[in-house]
Design a protein around this nucleic acid. Structure first.
Length: 203
DNA sequence: AAACGCGCCGGGAGAGATCT
DNA sequence: AGATCTCTCCCGGCGCGTTT
């Protein structure tokens, strides 16, 4: 690889890059997307943490900067996260003084989320950091390449969304991690019992 | 270097309150 | 009564720092 900047990267990053350039240049796209996504996330995390902001809070702040005062549920949808995750994050954000939650007159059920002046002020500090990460991530790509990447990403997202919609129509859904854990535990127990039985008949 | 523990986050499920 | 919304609990995945 002829890029002398790579002398600065750590061994882990180096091995990831070696994997993609030397050993498995044709490995599945999903793996490439994962590495790219992780890199972008970590770059942003690095910058946010310097301001005491966790990556989880970033998603909610971004929504609130444009949709201040929406309900907790709407916020979860807009941020693309589960309501339980939203609830936990908002508790912390309220503690930190970035948001406050209030009921509107006439509706004691819905809780609306409002930025505090402090939360609002974060926009000026944090958005440039995200823009910086974007700039760094696409450095060396031409406008044309960037346009192609954008199109490709949108196509991938659309294709996968359609696939999920089809699966949903068939009644197929993602098995929860808990169910998988239980299933594995049952399988392990069964295997152990079978081994035990085998040993007992032997001896 | 490998194992371990910890904290954070995401997700599922369900209870309880409130609205329509 | 049924729908909607918030909140809580629990568990698993992941990254990271510490210990062995």
């Amino acid at each position: 690889m002829g890029d002398e900047r790579l002398d600065q990267v750590d061994d882990t990053t180096r091995s990831i890059l070696d994997h993609w350039t030397e050993f498995a240049p044709d490995d599945r796209l999903a793996h490439l997307l994962r590495d790219a996504s992780r890199g972008v996330t970590r770059a942003l995390q690095l910058r946010l943490s310097e301001h005491g902001i966790s990556f989880g809070h970033w998603a909610f702040l971004r929504v609130l900067w444009t949709l201040d005062g929406i309900s907790q549920r709407e916020l979860a949808v807009q941020a693309g996260l589960m309501e339980s995750t939203t609830h936990t994050a908002l508790n912390r954000m309220e503690e930190l003084g970035h948001i406050e939650r209030r009921h509107k007159p006439g509706n004691r059920r819905k809780l609306h989320v409002y930025l505090t002046p402090r939360g609002r002020a974060l926009e000026k500090t944090l958005v440039p950091l995200a823009e910086e990460v974007n700039r760094i991530a696409v450095a060396g790509l031409s406008a044309r390449q960037l346009e192609s990447v954008r199109k490709a990403m949108l196509t991938i997202i659309t294709n996968l969304a359609l696939d999920e919609a089809e699966a949903s129509k068939r009644g197929q859904r993602i098995v929860s991690t808990r169910d998988i854990g239980r299933r594995n535990a049952r399988a392990a127990a069964k295997k152990k019992a079978a081994t035990h039985k085998k040993d007992a008949t032997k001896g």
